[in-house]
Amino acid sequence: MGTTWGTIGGVFGVSLGVTVLVVVLFSLGVTAWARAGGGTPRHGARRGRLDTVAAAAAVVCFAACLAIAAYGIELIIPG
């Protein structure tokens, strides 16, 4: 019985950590991406340096999420 609750605790800890990491990264990515114009160039306005930085930050965040997802796929495929 004790090991069962221990495993549940492990599942809880690991999934909480991973989920919070992915959701925070993705949310930051979305925020940065929205700041950079949401992928569509604004007409008439020149893209400032801040926009470029925001776009780069978004790319980094999304790439990190993709890497975690790739690790997830590797876990799904045994051996």
């Binding site: 809880f12 999934s15 909480l16 989920t19 919070v20 959701v23 925070v24 993705f26 949310s27 930051l28 990515g29 979305v30 925020t31 991406w33 929205a34 700041r35 949401g38 992928g39």
Partner: peptide, 25 residues
């Protein structure tokens, strides 16, 4: 519990982002 915390964080972090872009993302 995990989803509750994740949802809360997602809304807190993106609450100032432009809504249509956030939705799309």
């Amino acid at each position: 519990v995990v989803a509750m915390l994740a949802t809360y964080l997602a809304y807190v972090i993106t609450h100032r982002a432009a809504a249509p872009a956030a939705r799309k993302g």
